[in-house]
Amino acid sequence: MHNLTPAIWVELLKVRRSRMPLYTLLGFALAPLAGGFFMIVLKDPELARRVGIISAKAQIVAGAADWPTYLGFLAQATAVGGFILFSLIVSWVFGREFADYTVKDLLALPTPRSSLVLAKFIVVAVWSAVLTAMIFVIGVGVGQVVGLPPAPAGVWGPGTVVLAITAGLTIALVTPVAFFASAGRGYLPPMGAAILVVVLTQIIAAAGWGDYFPWSIPALYAGIGGVQSLTLSPISYALVGATGLVGVIATLVWWELADQPR
């Protein structure tokens, strides 16, 4: 891919100079903090009785105040909240070129447009992965502060793997958002599409077809429906992969072929 490395350098420079990394980190940091709060609630029945509804909610989501439950909560938060946050990142990385009218400077260059698009996808993936890693680190800190009991052997490995795979699946599923940011030339169309997907996910998962709706799969994998992650078939994972690929290809084709009259 011609001149991909300089294109990645350019995208990273834009990210470094913006406040978006800070904002997305602050937004995502709510996940381990919320998880920590649920752990406090579960640890202290007296407090649980005082907060009432939140206690009931904590029972459903978490179950017990321990590391496996807490790591599971982080994975589920990555699947649900992460999708919105990663969509925001994609919307910014792609949509800003249109909102700031800078795209015209990228269209008649020796660097192929496909390199520019791939560089953006790579930066989105790295950014999202780093955020997830930071959430994990913050989560470990919060878990210590909350005073979760020491994890038995064999908890950290699987818990970390589930979180990483959940993040990977979620990142793959935001590629179509890049297409909406490009074809919609800004921030609102992709965020509208992402919100629509979240709504559809709720409906389709409630109807029992979540295994076959790509955007339901990370949450199911993370165990939001109990032990369902064990029952996900290879078709589910293939659907996620295919969706990610379609998003990348659609965005590449659009950048190569669509008229750019603005």
């Binding site: 300089p6 100079r17 020796p110």
Partner: peptide, 12 residues
């Protein structure tokens, strides 16, 4: 930096 961006995207 804006010019550096353009320079990087014009190899050579």
């Amino acid at each position: 930096e804006n010019l550096e961006v353009m320079r990087r995207l014009r190899p050579g």
